[in-house]
Each structure stands twice: as structure tokens, then as C-alpha cells.
Simulated assay, not measured.
Amino acid sequence: MPAISSGPILNSGTYLSTMLNILISNEDLTATAIIELEVFLIPISSIGSPKIPTAHQLFSLAPLTVATREVSIAGFPAYEVQFNVTGTNVVIDVFGHDDAGNLNASQRVLQSEESPISAITPVP
């Protein structure tokens, strides 16, 4: 599986997301997957400002298991999630939630909607 990105996701409108939930499922019957996860906050108000890394995790996921990760995105107008996955049968979905824990449907990105990228952004 190539590196993938959610692309920039706007966190605006009536219902702002404060928490990002990431659901990772290794659907392989025998192989352990290695996942590198990065989340960036994007300060849209400053044109040309770099993305701000807020989460960088490297972990393994056994066959036929599911993991969730939560990252705070409160107060930022946009964010992006990137993954580098070693494994062939891994599904990753991204969901924004508001303060009350309600799903913000306009900020969900299913794996079928994510874009391949050449590599994830290096985090200093």
C-alpha cells in the first residue's frame, strides 16, 4: 500500500470538530501491518505558514485487529492526516467529532476517498 493522505480538511462551518478519530483495521489473515501516522494542523490564516505536526506515531497491528487513535484538532481551521502503511489489506478511515462526541459528517474521510502520495511529510 502506498503512502496516503486525507488531503487538507476544512474545520469550519456551524459544527466545528475538536477531536479527530482514526480507525485502522488490519484485515489480513496472517500478516502484521506497520503503520506510521502523522496529523498536521493547518493555520489557514497565515498564507505560506507550514503545517504544524501534532501527532506522529509508529505502531504495528496484528492480523484481524482494529486500532483507534484520537488527536485533538480544537481551534484549528484545517488539518491533514497522512499514513505510511506496510501491509496489503489495511483500511484506514478518519472521522471528525465535535465537543459532544457527535460525528461531523462533512469531515469524515473514508479510505476510498484518500489520495496516494509519494511519501509522508518528514516531521522534524
Rank of each mutant, 00 (worst) to 15 (best):
V85K: 07
L64F: 08
F95K: 00
V90P: 02
V81A: 07
A62S: 15
V85T: 14
N89F: 06
I92L: 10
S60N: 11
L61F: 11
V81S: 02
D93S: 08
V81I: 08
F76S: 13
V66R: 15
V94Q: 01
V81G: 01
F76M: 10
G96I: 04
V94H: 01
E70D: 15
N84C: 04
V66H: 13
A67P: 05
S60I: 12
A62I: 07
I92A: 07
R69M: 11
S72F: 14
P77C: 01
F76P: 04
G87T: 01
E70A: 14
H97T: 10
Y79R: 01
Q82T: 02
F76N: 11
T88S: 11
P77V: 01
S72V: 12
V71M: 11
S72D: 14
E80G: 04
D93M: 04
V91W: 01
V91E: 03
T86E: 14
A78W: 07
A78V: 05
I73G: 03
T88R: 10
N89V: 03
E80M: 09
I92G: 00
F76I: 09
T88W: 14
V85P: 05
L61W: 11
T88K: 10
F83K: 00
G75W: 12
V90K: 00
T86S: 12
V81L: 04
I73L: 09
A78K: 02
D99Q: 05
S60C: 03
T68W: 12
T86V: 13
E70I: 13
V90E: 01
I92F: 02
V91Y: 03
A78P: 09
P63T: 08
I92K: 07
V66L: 15
S72N: 14
D98S: 04
L61V: 15
E80L: 07
N89L: 08
Q82L: 02
A100E: 08
A62C: 05
T68Q: 14
V66G: 03
L61M: 13
G75H: 12
E70C: 11
N84E: 13
G101K: 01
D98G: 03
Q82W: 04
E70N: 15
S72M: 13
G87V: 02
V85N: 09
S72C: 13
E70V: 14
V85D: 07
A100I: 01
Q82R: 08
A62K: 15
A100S: 08
E80T: 04
D98T: 06
Q82V: 04
L61E: 12
Y79N: 02
N89M: 06
V81N: 01
Q82S: 02
F95Q: 00
D98H: 04
F76Q: 09
A74V: 12
D93I: 03
V91H: 08
R69G: 03
D93Y: 07
Y79V: 02
G87R: 00
G87A: 03
L61Y: 10
L64C: 07
